[in-house]
Design a protein around this nucleic acid. Structure first.
Lengths: 312, 312
DNA sequence: CGGGGACATCGTCCAGGACGAAGGTTTGAC
DNA sequence: GTCAAACCTTCGTCCTGGACGATGTCCCCG
């Protein structure tokens, strides 16, 4: 290894680029061979040295690929073109429902007011109620922060502070609810290995707990076999898996089908997150949750087929 | 890619092993060439298929390497031998200071009593106080759970539930403290890219907040350049970096020295975690925090040289 | 209009060679 | 005897270039 890490950025080693972009070393070399991009400089020892411009372009390409695009058509585009494509894409999504809130949070981030940001989150969570906070504030903020980060309007560390602050606010709001009693549905939450988007899980939990569900979160990156064991061990009624757009579609579907085959039918399996929108055919026995709002109807409809469940 | 993920484990692909063990594909192939271990079977297409026994051994080897051992001497050992080595190693550490507590938690984990575990954590945190809870309960529990996991006495999902539960308990206890006022030291917490051990950060935060420090956590995996920017943007007095034993020593020292060179001298830099024990020469201008308990004296001694600090 | 097959795209894996950095050891000087 | 410098061994990552299989796309046919 031995990436100079913070050495005033003379260039990125291939390892550093892999870390920064999520594109594997093999893939980076293959693109160079096939598409001629990126074409990094070489150091004295013949090793690749990527410029920060190349890294920025690669990041943009990756982002678009996570949205379903294929590399062939976009690797040669310039950074502005890629940004334009991303904008066009995100325009499909519902417009910013709370432009003023978004502006306020971005201002807090830019002014590096950690305490102010924290206060903002806590106050909004209390004022709106947990579910509404998640749906009407956090979700659009996530989109806006992601977009700002992509466009270079937000530094990495600012984005980190945002994520951490939301995390804290949600966690504390969730804790404020009492433990649910017997008879309420038990929901097991986690993600597959390689998927480390913790915030998604937490948002789902924040929607479910006020509904009286008993949530057991395993955190991120649980091997599939252990997900199965956990679902049985904790006698889960619902198994909720979350996937970001970057997660390989095939691996997700494989894992879901494997779980479906190995878990008894009464265990409902939810697959939520960006990925649920990219899936073509719904795997049998899986409930797709294409967006956060769909979580609530899914939970309520769970109670119907199990109407005979001894709730008391 | 296309790891069959949960396909009843006919064998692990090289990607799966990389994920499971943290050993890179290149390294796995190199070990096979050099040491003849592992020697995975091949599928119809000639691709490596590792057995679960090999994966277990690899995991044990990795664990010992994280403790500073070198591969040449241990790759050929059998799993029991490796376990014995690990035991001998951990015997160096202070004995289990709370064997009863440890037994109780392991029992809760084995019986899959998520609610009971949660209650246990919350009660102990309240009864002992946050700092004592971290030092006397969480730290030894972490060691015990890690050892149990290594020895196969704990399933992965049980370990995940433990981590998540501790996380929730700490977060909620930290939130119970009021925000500190002006004049108190501002501590910025994070880890370098590749280091995802969030719990370590949280434990440090739990020790500092009761001391009146203002903690700003960026979460894990902040690029070095962004750590630098964040330290300046948030006008941090102390920059606390956490490293697990698995983190490559070289990268850590490089990053620390780079930060030290680029940050003004009044910014104190702490390097904590397992790694601090493996370091030979303390890099100039860095404060090593070899164990959690050392955090408190470090914070107190910070206040002395900076007594004249112009806060207002 | 929908399903299947052919073609093109694309990501990962394989093999083996090389280099440079880190660790450990021996030598030499004080 | 002790410390430091030089040497040697160990070790991880990077390199090239080839191959295959999985996936997506398009077109034709029913």
């Amino acid at each position: 290894m031995s990436p100079p890490l913070g050495a005033s950025l003379p260039g990125f080693t291939i390892s550093a680029v892999e870390r920064e972009t999520g594109l594997s070393k093999d893939l980076l070399r293959m693109w160079e061979r096939r598409y001629g991009f990126p074409r990094p400089a070489r150091d004295a020892g013949g090793e690749r040295l990527y410029s920060s411009g190349e890294v920025a372009r690669l990041r943009a390409v990756k982002r678009l690929m996570d949205l379903g695009m294929r590399p062939g058509g976009i690797v040669h585009r310039s950074l502005p073109e890629l940004d334009a494509l991303a904008d066009a894409r995100s325009a499909d999504a519902p417009g910013d429902p709370a432009p003023e809130t978004v502006r306020e949070v971005l201002a807090l981030l830019h002014s590096h007011d950690a305490a102010g940001l924290r206060t903002f989150m806590v106050q909004h969570a209390m004022r709106q109620g947990l579910q509404q906070f998640v749906l009407a504030t956090v979700a659009p903020l996530n989109r806006a922060v992601g977009a700002a980060w992509m466009g270079g309007d937000l530094q990495v560390f600012e984005e980190h502070l945002y994520t951490e602050t939301v995390h804290v606010a949600l966690r504390s709001a969730i804790n404020a609810f009492p433990r649910s009693a017997e008879g309420s549905p038990r929901v097991l939450l986690t993600t597959f290995p390689g998927e480390s988007h913790h915030l998604g899980l937490l948002m789902v939990e924040a929607l479910l707990v006020p509904e009286g569900a008993q949530c057991i979160s395993l955190g991120t990156q649980t091997p599939v076999e252990d997900v199965r064991r956990a679902a049985l061990a904790y006698r889960a009624n619902v198994l909720a898996l979350s996937f970001s757009g970057a997660y390989p579609l095939r691996a997700a579907v494989d894992g879901l089908e494997s779980l479906r085959a190995q878990l008894p039918p009464p265990v409902t399996i939810w697959a939520g997150g960006e990925l649920a929108r990219r899936v073509r055919r719904t795997p049998p026995g899986i409930v797709l949750i294409p967006d956060l709002a769909a979580t609530l109807p899914a939970l309520r409809s769970w109670k119907l087929p199990g109407g005979a469940r001894s709730d008391g």
